[in-house]
Amino acid sequence: MRRTPIFLLSLGALIGSQPVFAVGTTAGTDIANSAQVDYEVAGTPVSQSSNILVVTVAEILDINVLLQSPIVPVTPGDANRSLLFTVTNTGNGTEDFTLAIDSALPGDDFDPAPATPSIFFDDDGSGDLSAGDTPYTAGVNDPQLAPDASVNILLVNDIPLGLVDGNLGFSELTATSLTGTGAPGDVFGGQGDLGTDAVVGANGGDYADTGTYILSNVSLSIVKSASVTDPFGGTEPVPGALIVYQIVVIASGSGTAINASFSDPIPPFTTYVAGSLTLNGGPLTDAPDADAGAFAGGAVTVSLGDLDSADGPQTIAFTVVIN
């Protein structure tokens, strides 16, 4: 059954508000019942047992698919970006399931492009596509799950070019009981475990969940300004005058600039004023050591770390003297 993400959300809320049925008695279990009657006839006690009635538990076909990944930030042109799902057999029999990907869903801004192959078993449990993960091929290595057993599945998509920051792309994993699907209560005679009947459960024998990619671009704007103070109290760029450079770095967009750093060579015919480097008003040492700043090889360098829009403007300042 295909479900739109919106419907999935409401379904999820519904399930969350109701007790989730743990897997019950295993399919094929024989449950015997016998009653006993005790009485007296003319003062003589008699004890008798009834027939032994056996009810055999049928197999219920039920499956759950649950997205494990948060919304995955991506950039245009990314390859092999994975979404992690857990597929759980919520029925009471051992069942094979087929898996399918759908990345052409309505309601999003772009369609992720399924990689080839696009469904993997997360063999190493890393939650991400790794070299050792086994690709899934329908009909070849359909997962077989005992009652209550689960398997971690990765959907792998490439991200198209030409997208705008904040764009969303959906990708859906569907798991389907190999015995069959249908309306809850539909019966597949004799196709359950140990020859029992298989009964379609509340989820209809298949289930899907949807993961989301978000375009998460970041751009850094850098504005540099200079002010000159000459030895005579004026602002003439004459030998001996000091130039204070101020650089403001601002991250914008929804993403994060990883390990951002700023580097600026000292202009020709000037000399760096030792100890003049600051970040957001705080002094930095010139040595390339533990703090964020350094002056080496004729350039100042400041490490800004991971920078996003929430960090606000980062102000760097240093001073040179005109030779």
């Binding site: 008695t25 019942n33 005790d38």
Partner: peptide, 26 residues
């Protein structure tokens, strides 16, 4: 015949005196 977890099963015990004397303290 097709009982799955969560289903309600109704058990009925039927009994009758097929003899010629009353049964006491049943």
């Amino acid at each position: 015949s097709k009982v799955v977890p969560g289903d309600i099963v109704i058990y009925t015990v039927s009994f009758s005196n097929t003899g010629s004397e009353p049964a006491e303290n049943v």
